[in-house]
Nucleic acid binder design. Structure first.
Length: 489
RNA sequence: CGGGAUGUAGCGCAGUCCGGUAGCGCGUGCGCCUGGGGGGCGUGAGGUCGCAGGUUCAAAUCCUGUCUUCCCGACCA
């Protein structure tokens, strides 16, 4: 059978689309720019969600749910935020349809059912949440308020790609209120650390923690912190953001509290989010020309057992025993008893959908008391005695998780390059790509100019950045540190 | 939102220029043979040609409109 996935070297975009389709992660829908997340894709998202949710709760956050619609007057209250999102908002103007008198069987918007005030479909929930918080916060005893919500949001994007940028997407958005600036900044950084921990230790996707330039900052924030990952095509992906909002929203929505000295103060705020975009990052960090590769910690099914050539009683017995042992260790496993498909076909199919470990059991193996274990990341195959399978697989899953991360780290590190002149800068951006570590004079004007000339943007100023005197690569003006540039998704 | 492509069977495509009532490969149903990396032979099923109008004796094909998807740009998580 012909290869069904375009190779990465031939056409990276097409490869990505092929993976999403062939691994049955998502489909396009009847609605422009909106996707259907299929069971294979949603199962991974559920794992992402479960782990993050646990981490949020361990740090004192609780979940709640706020409405999809935001009255326009609330939405516009925080000016910068409203301005930032205005161009991509869906707006509800009517609340009723009626039969179209001109065309039988058709419906039309009832012109008599215009809303007095339009409702904005949330592109993010700060407005509705801060309007609500005003009623919840009275005293310093009510603080901090640490709330998260899992929700869908809508941003009317011109150009969409499955998972990476869709008009509607799923995400979590945390919205916290604090009595001091320091505590809010600490919260912002704490969440960033959780995101980085999750990205690296669960997704096996190395990230750089940093702070955004003014130009790339979230509208309405004082500071935006980010985790930036690098995809296999050497383009950067913003994988999560955590915002220190200062008192902007507290002032816009008049959220004040009485401090211990009985004085009224505005609260300090944060917001933070990661979205289904992480799925895109996961795909583009690990997958290869044979299909999806999922790190074991997020794989809905970690191990699949394939009988060779087809199941019989003896193979079934061994498979059952192995499954029981694996499950006792908390490993998810599936036994493929489908008699209609051939082993070779199953091998290819499970590689396509990214199951980390495959166990092949045939009569020839059983005569020797072994099974064949194949790992998805390296395609390596090993013979392992039946009795030791559970321990072997448990170790192997850890090893795969680690190997995926190390491989990604190596690639990322090889694609961080220093540039000291603009010619060098352009050569790297247009050549090997990746992050370019270069001096910048700190002005938005220069940043925009560089973007116009090279399409590279400032991804972040790394938190662990070393201070270093230098000259801006474009203007030659003095600079105190290098920042990371890259072409980004 | 601008430029360029695209839409025909589940998937990938040909047919469109030069209108005449739809075809190929893969998949799929059934049968037999096979069986340690996407099997072989045989025999079937499956499409109001994206949608809506129009021209015509006749439209996948020509015209108009509209929508989808992809690529490039602008915008953006």
């Amino acid at each position: 059978m012909a290869k069904e996935i375009k190779s990465r070297s031939e056409d990276y975009s097409q490869w990505y689309n092929d993976i999403v389709r062939k691994a049955q992660l998502a489909d396009h829908s009847a609605v422009r720019g909106c996707m259907v997340i299929k069971p294979n894709g949603f199962a991974i998202w559920e794992n992402i969600k479960a782990q993050l949710d646990k981490m949020f709760k361990e740090t004192g956050h609780v979940n709640a749910y706020f409405p999809l619609f935001v009255p326009k007057s609330l939405f516009e209250a925080e000016e910068k935020n409203a301005e930032g999102f205005a161009k991509e908002c869906a707006v509800v103007t009517h609340y009723r349809l009626k039969n179209d008198p001109a065309e039988k069987g058709k419906l039309m918007v009832d012109p008599d059912a215009r809303l007095e005030e339009e409702l904005v479909v949330r592109p993010t929930s700060e407005a509705i949440i801060w309007n609500t918080y005003r009623g919840w916060i009275n005293s310093y005893r009510d603080l901090p308020l640490l709330i998260n919500q899992w929700a869908n949001v809508v941003r009317w994007e011109m150009r969409t790609r499955l998972f990476l940028r869709t008009a509607e997407f799923l995400w979590q958005e945390g919205h916290t209120a604090h009595s001091t600036k320091e505590e809010a900044i600490e919260e912002t950084r704490k969440i960033l650390a959780i995101y980085a921990d999750f990205a690296e230790n669960y997704m096996a996707m190395p990230v750089i923690k940093g702070i955004k330039s003014a130009n790339e900052r979230f509208a309405g924030a004082e500071d935006t912190y980010t985790i930036e990952a690098l995809m296999q095509d050497a383009r950067a992906l913003q994988a999560g953001t955590s915002h220190f909002l200062g008192q902007n929203f507290a002032k816009a929505f008049d959220v004040q509290f009485l401090n211990q000295n009985n004085k009224r103060e505005y609260v300090w705020a944060t917001s933070w989010g990661v979205s289904t975009r992480l799925m895109g990052g996961l795909i583009m960090t690990h997958s290869d020309d044979d299909g999806l590769v999922i790190p074991p910690k997020l794989a809905p099914t970690q191990v699949v057992i394939v009988p060779i050539p087809k199941p019989n009683e003896q193979i079934g017995e061994v498979a059952d025993k192995i499954m029981a042992n694996l499950r006792a260790k908390g490993i998810s496993v599936k036994f493929d008893t489908d008699k209609k498909k051939r082993p070779g076909f199953k091998f290819a199919e499970y590689e396509m959908i990214g199951i980390p470990v495959r166990i092949g059991i045939g009569m020839r193996d059983l005569e020797k008391g072994v099974v064949e274990i194949a790992r998805r990341d390296t395609k390596e195959k090993m013979s392992v005695p039946v009795d030791g399978v559970a321990d072997f697989v448990a170790n192997l899953l850890d090893e795969i998780q680690d190997n995926l991360f190390q491989k990604a780290v190596k690639f990322r590190d090889e694609h961080i390059t220093k540039a000291d002149t603009f010619d060098e800068f352009k050569e790297i951006i247009n050549g090997k790509g990746g992050f370019v570590h270069a001096h910048w004079d700190g002005t938005t004007e220069t940043e925009i100019k560089i973007k116009e000339l090279t399409k590279a943007t400032i991804r972040c100023i790394p938190l662990d950045n070393e201070k270093e005197e230098g000259k801006c690569i474009l203007t030659g003006k003095p600079s105190t540190q290098r920042v990371l540039f890259a072409k980004a998704y």
